[in-house]
Design a protein around this nucleic acid. Structure first.
Lengths: 339, 339
DNA sequence: CTGAAAGCGCTAACAC
DNA sequence: GTGTTAGCGCTTTCAG
């Protein structure tokens, strides 16, 4: 505990009133005489009394507090989301605490997860992992909880997410429109379902264009540089290498660019690259990266609003809400070079 | 409140034991018969009981929970610090919650600040503002609290920070060593004291080199692009413009680079630029930015350790602890071109 | 208007 | 071993 405990009782004693007259005075309740109120407030001031919020909360008061759970990984997009959610929550006079952990169901962590669940009026889960057991608990209890950018499986909880599948399709169609036919896809992990959905969009676009998806062109980068480098190398070493690469996120796309540069390939003259997310670094890349921009602001606003609706007691509505990503064309994609 | 409240009492009833036997069984206390324990655990499982952490906490249990307060602004360096602190805390089996607000003493916010102060075993304040009233409270109460990168004023609380003054001096000496004599300094706000200290180091180096600091070369960028652009323009329009610019952080240095490029000036041939922080973007800048790297990891580790020492009841020690920043030479600085 | 008492959910003394 | 009791600090009936 942080503070030296000055309790309301002590204030009451100092002011010569009963405990609950003090309570009334502090809370500016109406049923107190001006004189008593003055004495209590003076005593509170002098003793530097601060109410114990835990105690209040345990009595069931609203805290006007929202919790965000984030996986320690993936601070890329997450950071923007947190900022926007924070802003929107504050606008609506809610505070926000962020809890960051690798796995919320870790034996060690469970205490804090529960604590926050107890403490907060509602929870926002950012990019939770499909294995996170806390999702089962939340689903079962139908707590006030909204999932953000979760697509790993069907779940009986409200979800707000970028439309990954449509985005994946848009990215691929952009490449198709430039004349590319051999388009590779580098996927990340399946933990949140983001990459998986983007891949579905990629396949959608290919099939709509009458191109059979080639398994050799779908490789695993796993959202990390090491595997992405290896995957890119494999792709380039193919008998018939791709003329364009769609990486499931910008981080991997940047790594692809790096490998390409190392092999002396020109982008987009020799090969085109497109990412997903539009992270801050994207526009600084060499060349600036074409990508799909996450509608972080809209996602955040919608997620907060739906959470508040639940808190306000509106009927439980586990609908999935998808928000479109915007294609941002920069210099890393270009027309297929005919030989 | 998030959960449907299943209390320990209900579990006890269901198991046909007393409240307190149930408590013992749940906590794996030794003084319970195996049979009672089994019955209680079965009941708890069936009812999906989860202990109310608030209640436990109110009784005074340790939460093994640390709180980080960050100002919503300045997510640049802050984000790295949060990551490292989080990692170190977890290594030591502490959880972490992050509270992000513009001003912690805002009437509206005070509830949450207090709540977290009650809840957490200790608090880490990241780059707090000098005006934050919560600092006065913390100082007065001598709570378990460590300030990170605060240099705005003397304060009776432990502080861990990068050595801004030495860093500012190193940056300036680097420029001096390249032959520069007219070196400008773009400072940020005085809110946290970071910029102010870096400026002191700049002046230190200049004076040590026998150069009188020129007020015309010290301009305000205020950590934002708009004012930084204006400041840079002013500098370049001087009768005798600087040959090198030291920006108090990388963000401003990047803006400087942008203005220089727009004016057709070559970096570092025409003018050198150095920043501070070594944010991720720094190495991607055009040209890659020479800067001072924040020892985020060391700062985080030291801050956590000092906080834990306080929590463990070691004597209060409000010493300031400074950690050196490392000069990272990239391509934005070069020798003075003689005309 | 004010005070006494109950109780939020839990754990730690103290009996049995 | 197990149950009973007394709080943690606060708000809220319910009587005065």
């Amino acid at each position: 505990m942080m503070r030296k405990a000055v309790t309301l009782q002590q204030v009451a004693d100092a002011a010569g009133v009963s405990l609950n007259t003090a309570s009334r005075a502090i809370r500016a309740d109406r049923y107190v005489s001006d004189e008593a109120r003055a004495r209590v407030q003076e005593a509170a001031e002098r003793l530097q009394y601060r109410p114990n919020v835990l105690a209040r909360r345990m009595r069931g008061d609203k805290a006007r507090l929202l919790g965000i759970f984030v996986n320690a990984i993936g601070w890329g997009v997450v950071h923007e989301l947190v900022d926007h959610i924070s802003e929107e929550a504050r606008r609506l006079d809610f505070d926000l605490v962020v809890f960051s952990a690798q796995n919320f169901h870790d034996r060690r962590r469970i205490g804090t997860s529960d604590l926050l669940a107890d403490l907060c009026d509602g929870l926002l889960m950012l990019l939770p992992n499909r294995e996170d057991k806390i999702l089962d608990v939340l689903e079962r209890e139908r707590g006030n909880c909204v999932l953000v950018s979760f697509a790993a499986r069907e779940i009986g909880l409200p979800v707000v997410s970028v439309d990954n599948r449509a985005g994946g399709r848009t990215a691929t169609e952009h490449l198709l429109g430039l004349g590319h036919r051999r388009i590779a896809f580098i996927h990340g992990s399946h933990a949140t379902g983001q990459s998986t959905e983007r891949q579905k969009g990629y396949v959608d676009a290919l099939e709509a264009a009458g191109i059979a998806p080639d398994p050799a062109l779908m490789v695993l980068g796993n959202f990390n540089p090491v595997e992405t480098r290896a995957a890119t190398t494999d792709l380039l070493d193919l008998a018939e290498p791709p003329t364009a690469i769609f990486a499931a996120n910008d981080g991997m796309a940047l790594t692809v660019l790096e490998v390409l540069r190392a092999r002396g390939l020109a982008v987009p003259a020799d090969i085109s690259v497109i990412g997903f997310d539009d992270m801050p670094l994207a526009s600084y890349a060499q060349p600036p990266l074409t990508t799909l921009r996450q509608p972080s602001h809209d996602i955040a606003v919608r997620a907060v609003h739906r959470l508040l609706a639940m808190i306000d007691g509106e009927p439980f509505d586990p609908a999935r809400e998808l928000i479109a990503a915007e294609l941002v064309v920069r210099a890393s994609t270009g027309p297929l070079r005919r030989n």
